[in-house]
Each structure stands twice: as structure tokens, then as C-alpha cells.
């Protein structure tokens, strides 16, 4: 176990330069070739947000303000980090499969593939987060001290979903079934996490407690702490504790999967 952790850490340090190059090229590859190119990075989430806003505000007449903010602002504060989480859940699972040639043709540390995929998704999401800040400013809410927490939640989010990528990427490389499983669970996860509603206000204590173990809920709440609720991260200690429990869990799973499957993956891909 310790050996495996050391190995993974060593690979990341030794290939740190390539990691960022690969992340960059991954983004370029994703958006090059389309006529609007980079615009898609913004258009796609904008359409999604519009659909949810329309369904809830216009369709379901959910027009009341959330904690003194318009529903639209409350929505984007939580849904923007979700876009990263959604992408990295799926892209992480696909990562090793989609970079087959790095596994089979070149000597390259497989454990760093999910990392640069995650970096690539995060860089795109950081642009979107910047757009959120601008929208809040346009709506008359200037940045305050709470915005200093953005890097905290950014790192928390990145850490969990990158480690997830290693776990899911290894398993998906072994079997496509696992990839299909992930792809079909992700949309459900969206509705089961507190993105379209406030998980803290659920009245049934058991459901609330379980939901607060969900890293997606924790991160979405975190971003709303910054933009809406105006709270510091140490004020939601239960969620912080839960986050680290979940991180430890996924970390152990990822190390286990990597150690167990590392030798097999070049043979089965």
C-alpha cells in the first residue's frame, strides 16, 4: 500500500511537466475542429442552465428568492461546480480507455492519465466559475472575503474527483460494463445531490444525513456558502468531516484498484 502510494507520488512528480502539457492538449483536442471551437465550453453549460432555470422558474413557478438571492443566482452557484463533477465522473472513468496508446505503445505512467484529464476538466470549469463571479457582480453582488474560500473548495473538489478518476479509470479499462454503469448513474446523481434543492433543508434526518455524505452535495453547498449563504467552511464541520471520510474511502479504493490492475491493463486494453 505504502509502496503504491510512493510510486504514484513519484510518477506525478517525475511527469509534472508532461501532465500540464497533456491537460492542455486534451482541451485543445476537445474543442478543436468545431466551427465555434471554444465557444462550446460556455454554450453547452449555458443551455443546460437555461433549461433548468426555465423548468423551475417559469414552468414550476419556483420564483421565490433563495436566502435573499434570485433563484437563478442560487442555481448557478451550485450547478457550475456540478459541471466539473459531472465531467470528471465520466471522463475519469473513460480516461485510461481513451488514452490507450499511452498505455500500450509508450512507456508512460498510467496512474497520471486520470490526473491530467481531471486538470483539463478543471481548467474549463475555472473559466465558468469566473463567469459566475462576473454574473454576481452584474447583479450587484460584489466579491467579498468569503470569495477567498474558492481555492479551498476548488482543491477539495479536484482532489476527490481526481482520485475517483484513478479508481474508475482502472476499473473501466478492465471492463466496459463499469463505464456503462458510471454513465448511467451520473444523471441520477444530479437529482440525488443537493444541486436543485438545499440538502440542509430536507426534513427527514436520515436522508439529510446520508445526502451530506455525498461529495457532490458537499461541494455544491460549499460554493453556495461562498456566494449565497456567506459562511466559512469551518462553520459546516459535519460536511468537512464527511468529505474527508469519503476522500479517504475513495483513496483506499483507488490505491487498491491501481495496485491490483496495473499489470493487467496493458494486456486487456
Amino acid at each position: 500500500m505504502i509502496e503504491t502510494i510512493k510510486e504514484i507520488a513519484h510518477d506525478h512528480v517525475a511527469f509534472r511537466k508532461q501532465l500540464f502539457k497533456l491537460a492542455k492538449t486534451d482541451i485543445i483536442k476537445k474543442y478543436r475542429g468545431a466551427a465555434f471551437g471554444w465557444a462550446w465550453a460556455v454554450i453547452r453549460p449555458a443551455v443546460t442552465i437555461f433549461v433548468y432555470w426555465f423548468a423551475f422558474s417559469v414552468g414550476l413557478r419556483h420564483n421565490r428568492d433563495m436566502y435573499g438571492y434570485p433563484f437563478f443566482l442560487w442555481l448557478i452557484a451550485g450547478i457550475i461546480p456540478w459541471f466539473y463533477m459531472r465531467d470528471s465522473l465520466v471522463d475519469g472513468a473513460k480516461s485510461i480507455r481513451s488514452y490507450k496508446y499511452l498505455v500500450k505503445r509508450i512507456k508512460y505512467p498510467v496512474d497520471t492519465i486520470p490526473t491530467f484529464i481531471s486538470i483539463s476538466d478543471l481548467l474549463i470549469n475555472m473559466i465558468l466559475q469566473l463567469v459566475v463571479v462576473v454574473i454576481f457582480m452584474l447583479a450587484g453582488h460584489m466579491p467579498d472575503l468569503y470569495y477567498l474560500q474558492i481555492p479551498v473548495y476548488l482543491v477539495m473538489m479536484f482532489a476527490f474527483f481526481t482520485v475517483w478518476g484513478l479508481f474508475a479509470g482502472m476499473l473501466s479499462a478492465m471492463s466496459k460494463d463499469f463505464l456503462h454503469l458510471v454513465q448511467s448513474v451520473v444523471p441520477a446523481l444530479f437529482w440525488l445531490s443537493g444541486i436543485m434543492y438545499d440538502a440542509n433543508s430536507i426534513s427527514q434526518p436520515i436522508i439529510r444525513k446520508v445526502l451530506l455524505f455525498n461529495p457532490v452535495t458537499i461541494i455544491a453547498n460549499g460554493y453556495r456558502n461562498i456566494f449565497i449563504y456567506k459562511q466559512w467552511f469551518w462553520e459546516s464541520s459535519v460536511e468537512m468531516r464527511n468529505y474527508f471520510i469519503m476522500l479517504a474511502l475513495i483513496f483506499v479504493l483507488a490505491i487498491w484498484a491501481y495496485r491490483k490492475l496495473k499489470k493487467d491493463i496493458p494486456d486487456v486494453l
Binding site: 476499473l171 478492465m174 490492475l261
Partner: peptide, 9 residues
């Protein structure tokens, strides 16, 4: 098949 491979993990 693929399923067996996943189960073998």
C-alpha cells in the same frame, strides 16, 4: 466475456 473480467477483479 467482459462481465467475467469485471467480476474477476
Amino acid at each position: 466475456d467482459d462481465k467475467q473480467r469485471l467480476r474477476s477483479v
